[in-house]
């Protein structure tokens, strides 16, 4: 039951893009086509799940026992940068097809603030479910990371679909490009506000 609540809360209620503003750069940058934004979302989900697993272990088995929690930012970004490199190399060897699909997005992900943001979020925030608030355990952290990434993918794909239509519309000159994209995103965020208070 708790896992279902975690997933609904992360995908809809606290959508990472539209309510927490993490990963807005790729959201505005690569969301011109549904296919590329689906590829990007896949890569983000993959990296976010693995990164959260490793940063969780780093936090609770290295940083906390040694009392060097202030090294969190440096440690996490190093782990993420190394992981992205490793995922790229491994993927190239094991599954060239998947690498073809996700490969070009991987280098972009190191600086995708959603990955670092979620990694920090799961170890630093108390989550409230069913009236009890507590820090997440390892399994819950990975589940919530995947769910956040799914929310990212949902918002990206919805937005890309709208933008494909927008290309055909006659937009006033000053609104073309980023401004109309931002206003569209605002309306989408307004729609997502309807989920507030669901969990």
């Amino acid at each position: 039951m708790e896992y279902i609540l975690i997933i609904i809360s992360a995908v809809f209620v606290n959508n990472i893009l539209l309510t927490q503003f993490l990963g807005v750069c790729p959201f505005l940058g690569v969301s011109n086509k549904v296919s590329t934004s689906a590829g990007m979302s896949g890569a983000v989900m993959f990296v976010m799940a693995i990164a959260t697993l490793f940063t969780y272990l780093l936090q609770y088995y290295v940083l906390v026992p040694l009392h060097i929690e202030f090294m969190q930012t440096v440690g996490f970004i190093l782990v993420i940068a190394a992981l992205v490199q490793m995922v790229e190399i491994i993927l190239k060897k094991i599954s060239p097809a998947l690498y073809q699909a996700l490969g070009i997005f991987l280098p972009l992900i190191t600086t995708n603030c959603a990955v670092l943001g979620v990694a920090i979020l799961v170890v630093s925030k108390e989550f409230t479910f069913l009236g009890a608030s507590h820090y997440l355990n390892l399994a819950q952290s990975v589940v919530i990371a995947v769910a956040y990434a799914a929310g990212f993918g949902l918002a990206m794909t919805l937005f890309a679909g709208i933008r494909e239509q927008l290309d055909l519309a006659e937009v006033p000159k000053a609104f073309r490009g980023a401004p109309i994209a931002l206003i569209t995103a605002g309306i989408l965020a307004l729609a997502f506000m309807g989920f507030a208070g669901l969990v």
Binding site: L18, T19, Q20, F21, K173, A174, F175, A178, P179, I180, A181, L182, I183, A185, G186, I187, A189, L190, F192, M193
Partner: peptide, 25 residues
Amino acid sequence: TVFVLAPGAFIVLGYLLVLFNKIKR
């Protein structure tokens, strides 16, 4: 209130960009 919430951020930035584009031209 909506302007201090998430949708307001996107919409305000969008319109400020429009204004910036207009002034620049």
